[in-house]
Structure formats: C-alpha cells, structure tokens
Amino acid sequence: MDMYRIAVIGDADSVLGFQALGLEVCPVNSADEARQAIHRMARENYAILYLTEQLAAQLKNDIARYQDAVTPAIILIPGKEGSLGIGMANVKSAVERAVGADIL
C-alpha cells in the first residue's frame, strides 16, 4: 500500500527547517519551479503540500486547480518575509463555504 507523503515548497530559507520535523522539503528559486513541483507531486501521491504565501500569490491558477481535489491539500504558510495574510483568508473562505457564514 502506498503511503501518502507531505512536502514543503518554498525558498530554501523558508523550508529547510521543516526537514528537522521529518517533512520532505522542496526548495525552489522561482514560481515556475514551484509550479512544476506542485504538479509533479500531485501526480506522485502527495497528500499535503505546504507552500509559502509568497509563491502562492504568483500561482493562484495552479492552486485553484487542486482546490476541490481530495489530494493534494495545498496549505499556505508564511515565508521568511512573514505572513501576507493569504493563508488565513483562504481558511476563512473554506470555513464560509462549509458552514455558510463567516464564523472567524
């Protein structure tokens, strides 16, 4: 049975620390590299992809493609520059869709 995998995609400074937690890290240097990594990992049975908000801001269409898919779940995390607020906005949106109202 194949195990699902978890990866963190972003600039090296933002993602390398996650290796200590046992997560697979995928340091990238550009949005295009991140796009390729997301699509490859989606094909390779990754269940969760953590992606820095800075890259997510440039990859909205690519992320939207997986929004309603079971896997991979793409979860936005702040990069080394700090939070852009995109991750929390996405959580609020998902909660509103599920509950029917903004409870956050």
Rank of each mutant, 00 (worst) to 15 (best):
Tyr46Ser: 07
Glu96Lys: 07
Ile103Glu: 06
Val99Ser: 08
Leu23Pro: 00
Asn90Phe: 01
Ala73Tyr: 03
Ala73His: 03
Asp11Pro: 09
Ser83Ile: 04
Asn45His: 14
Ala57His: 07
Ile6Gln: 04
Ser93Met: 09
Ala34Gly: 06
Arg40Gln: 13
Arg35Val: 06
Lys92Thr: 08
Ser14His: 02
Leu76Val: 00
Glu24Ile: 08
Arg43Pro: 09
Gly85Gln: 11
Ala98Ser: 11
Ser93Trp: 06
Leu104His: 10
Ile103Gln: 06
Met1Gly: 15
Ile9Leu: 10
Asn29His: 05
Tyr4Lys: 13
Met41Cys: 07
Ser93Lys: 10
Asp2Gly: 13
Met1Gln: 11
Phe18Ala: 06
Ala12Lys: 14
Val25Tyr: 02
Asn29Ser: 07
Asn61His: 12
Met41Ile: 06
Asn61Lys: 13
Lys92Ala: 12
Ala56Lys: 03
Ala37Lys: 07
Val8Ser: 05
Leu84Phe: 14
Gln58Ala: 15
Gly22Asn: 00
Lys80Leu: 14
Asp11Glu: 10
Tyr50Val: 06
Leu104Ala: 12
Ala31His: 03
Val70Phe: 12
Gly22Met: 00
Val25Glu: 05
Pro72Arg: 01
Ser83Val: 05
Asp2Pro: 14
Arg40Asn: 11
Ile9Trp: 03
Arg40Ser: 13
Pro78Tyr: 01
Ala20Ile: 08
Val99Asp: 04
Glu53Trp: 10
Ile74Leu: 05
Lys92Met: 10
Ile38Leu: 15
Val15Phe: 01
Tyr66Asn: 00
Ser14Ile: 00
Ile38Thr: 11
Gly10Ser: 03
Asn90Glu: 07
Glu96Leu: 05
Arg65Leu: 13
Tyr66Cys: 01
Ala101Glu: 12
Asp62Met: 06
Pro78Arg: 00
Asp13Glu: 13
Tyr50Pro: 02
Lys92Phe: 06
Gly87Cys: 07
Leu104Met: 13
Ser14Pro: 02
Pro72Trp: 02
Leu84Asn: 12
Ile74Thr: 01
Glu33His: 11
Cys26Asn: 07
Ala101Arg: 14
Ala57Arg: 10
Ala20Thr: 04
Met88Tyr: 10
Asp62Ser: 09
Leu51Lys: 09
Ala57Asp: 10
Ala94Arg: 11
Ala69Phe: 06
Lys80Gln: 15
Tyr4Glu: 11
Asp32Gly: 08
Thr52Trp: 01
Val99Lys: 08
Glu24Met: 08
Gly17Ile: 02
Arg43Val: 08
